[in-house]
Structure formats: C-alpha cells, structure tokens
C-alpha cells in the first residue's frame, strides 16, 4: 500500500467503527426518516426485524395508514410509488410467519419491484441489518440528523399540505390515469403473480385477506378502478378469501383524490384493526 493511502484507510475504518458503535448503543429508535423512499425501506426492514401477527401490503394508499395505531401487532409495508406485490414478495421471501397478510387491492395493476425485494432480502445486507443498526436505513447519518432536528424543533408529524391548485392538479392527474382500464396482459400477469404468492403464503400456514381502501367517490367508479375491482374480486372471491369492508359512509375525504386525509386514515386503520380478527 502506498503511503498516502494509509490515512484514507485508517480514517475510514475509525470513522465507521465510531459511528457504528454510537448508533448500536444509542438509547433511541428512529421512526421518521428524511424521505418516502427511505420510509419504504425502513418499514420493510422493521417488518423483517420484528414478528408482527398481521402485515399490510400495498401502495402509497396503505403507506398513509398511521403506524402509530397499527404497531406493534400490525406491520405496514405499503410502498410509495409501488405495488402490493412488492410487499407480498418481501413477506413471502422473508421466512417470517405472520398469522395474516392483508393485501391492498386498489393498485394491483402496478408491477412487482424485484430490485426492492432483492435489496431487502439478499445476503449479506439482510444479515448485517439484522445484527447492526448502522446498516439500517433509519440509522444512516442523514436520518439521524433529521431525527435530531425534528426532536430539537419539537416538530410533530403533520399532514402534507397541498394548495388548492396542487390538490386540483393531482386530482385531474388521477382522473386521467384512471380513465382507461389497465393494460390487460400486464395486469393478468400481476394477478397470476399475486395468486402464486398467495398460494405460497397459504402453504406456509399464513392466512391471506384483501381490502380496498376508499378513495374519492368521483374516482372509485372510474374505468381503471372498476376493471381492477372486478378482476381482483374474480381472482380472489370473497367466499374463499377474507375481504375487509372499509368503505366510509358519505364518501372518503382525500388530499388529492386517492390518498386519505389523516382523519380518514385513522378511522380506516381502526376498521382494519377491528375487522382483521374475522380473517384469522
């Protein structure tokens, strides 16, 4: 080794060791992280590190269901920008045995993100994360700083604030996205993958249930949602699978047409907690 490389190697080793030791024995946990992608990862990692009896898998619609109400019995691995399939594949490949997995049916036209699944389950990352906090998303320096800042400023988790213009634009975007049924070949492929994963979970003795989260009444009966609902219900009929009823009388209140407000998220979460017992 050339001499100038020595300070590089020594500094890297020392700084890593010091940081790893600090977070390993730090008397706190990190629950809020800097962005939604990190939150996706943190939630998946939390699920892998714990043994919840129920797991929710879904998209950003499920993501917004407050974990403070769900944990510790129920893990929420709703993925922002993702599909229920991703969470389902993580549960299936994890070796964990929750009693019940509840699958959000709203956006099953979205594909499985194999990279995200691999990133959570492959060796040695999973092994390292399991034993050392320093490898977990929540404990990286930026998230630790973020945690420190939110503690210092006594910031509480506030809902996303959208201006009326933004809310309207999001709504119109959703309307456009949902104007046509999903592309049939890809959607059927997703349903087959879901069925395979469900069968795999059932073979391990894990019960599987489904739920459809309420969205803006104006979008619920859009061509896309109607087609998805029909096909998912056909593939996973209520006689064979447990379906939760989460509809809100008078219609759901949303931020942008699809994502529930904090109040409705909390109300829906309470319904899930109450109804999941029927699925065991």
């Amino acid at each position: 080794m050339e001499r100038p490389l020595l300070p590089v190697a020594v500094t890297a080793a020392l700084s890593f060791a010091a940081y790893a030791t600090f977070v390993q024995f730090a008397p706190f946990t990190v629950k809020v992280v800097q962005n939604q992608v990190d939150t996706n990862m943190m939630r998946a990692q939390n699920f892998l590190a714990a043994s919840p009896d129920t797991v929710l898998v879904g998209s950003s619609l499920t993501f917004r269901l407050p974990t403070s109400l769900l944990e510790p019995q129920v893990a929420n691995i709703g993925m922002v920008g993702g599909s229920s399939l991703t969470g389902l594949a993580i549960v299936d490949g994890s070796g964990q045995k929750p009693k019940l997995v509840l699958i959000e049916s709203n956006l099953l036209e979205r594909p499985l993100d194999k990279d995200a699944v691999q990133a959570q389950l492959r060796f040695p990352e999973r092994f390292l994360r399991q034993h050392f906090r320093v490898f977990r998303t929540g404990y990286d320096p930026a998230n630790l700083i973020w945690r420190g800042l939110t503690s210092l400023t006594h910031q509480t988790v506030a809902d996303i604030v959208l201006t009326p213009q933004a809310a309207r634009a999001f709504y119109l975007e959703q309307q456009q996205l949902k104007a046509h049924p999903p592309e049939p070949v890809n959607f059927q492929h997703n349903l087959q993958q879901t069925a395979a994963l469900v069968a795999s979970l059932e073979a391990k003795g894990i019960k599987v249930g489904f739920f459809e989260l309420p969205i803006n009444p104006g979008l619920m009966n859009s061509p896309a949602d109607t087609a998805v609902r029909r096909e998912v219900r056909r593939a996973f009929p209520s006689g064979r699978y447990c379906w939760l009823d989460l509809q809100i009388p008078g219609g759901a209140h949303t931020l942008d047409g699809v994502h529930l407000t904090l109040e409705d998220s909390a109300a829906t979460t309470r319904k899930i907690l109450a109804q999941r017992k029927n699925c065991f």
């Binding site: 190697a9 020594v10 890297a12």
Partner: peptide, 22 residues
C-alpha cells in the same frame, strides 16, 4: 495538506457505505 486530503477521502468512503442514496 496531503494528510488532510487523506482524512477527507476516508470520511467520504465511510459516507459512501453509510449514506448512499437509492
């Protein structure tokens, strides 16, 4: 100095391990 550069590179290397984004 060379040594300071080495230390900075060492810290960056640690940051790559700890703080790489998606």
């Amino acid at each position: 100095s060379m040594r300071a550069e080495g230390v900075a590179l060492g810290v960056m290397l640690t940051a790559i391990v700890l703080q790489a984004g998606n």
